[in-house]
Amino acid sequence: MKKSILIARNTMAARLLVRRIWAVSVKDFRRLPAAASLSSSSRFSSLNTSVHTRSFLSPSRSLPLSSHRCISFNVQDQDDFTERVINSDLPVIVDFHAQWCGPCKILGPRLEKAIAKQKGRVAMAKVDIDEHTDLAIEYGVSAVPTVIAMRGGDIIDQFVGIKDEDQLDSFVNKLIGQ
């Protein structure tokens, strides 16, 4: 609890700014027609539709930045994570984020930028912790954003919270051994 309160505080400043960009995208994803929602307590069970809306509205988060290959992707499920992260030939930066987390929205684009600079030498996997709670729980995520650097299925490095561009560059550089 303490941690999440902390997040909420950090979020405050960021929120105003973020809200402007995100005003349209934070549509209500909770109120669905009764038929569409198979009863569930997972808040984001219906997210498929809003994910699409979101990627459409916010290119910075969801469109591949590199033209030659798709290095930034949203993790779909546990199997997808195993295939594209754990078994990845490239080192992977995993960004555990949440829709309700302001700092995540600042860090995400910064991370993508840092990774784009590497021109395909490192990939970025994005995990929405509310959609893929089990993954986040398994990887010990307590607060978001949590960023994990993985190579060959091993965790090489990680941090929690926000970092500036230089710090992100050196985090990424370290992973690819520069």
Binding site: K3, I7, A8, T11, V26, A98, W100, C101, I137
Partner: peptide, 25 residues
């Protein structure tokens, strides 16, 4: 309304997560 609702819902989202983490811990 939407600004308020989103802010409130976001805060709740962080609480939901906090509960989940504390169960794990």
């Amino acid at each position: 309304w939407e600004t308020m609702k989103t802010a409130v819902n976001n805060y709740i989202g962080s609480l939901n997560w906090g509960y989940r983490v504390s169960l794990r811990d």
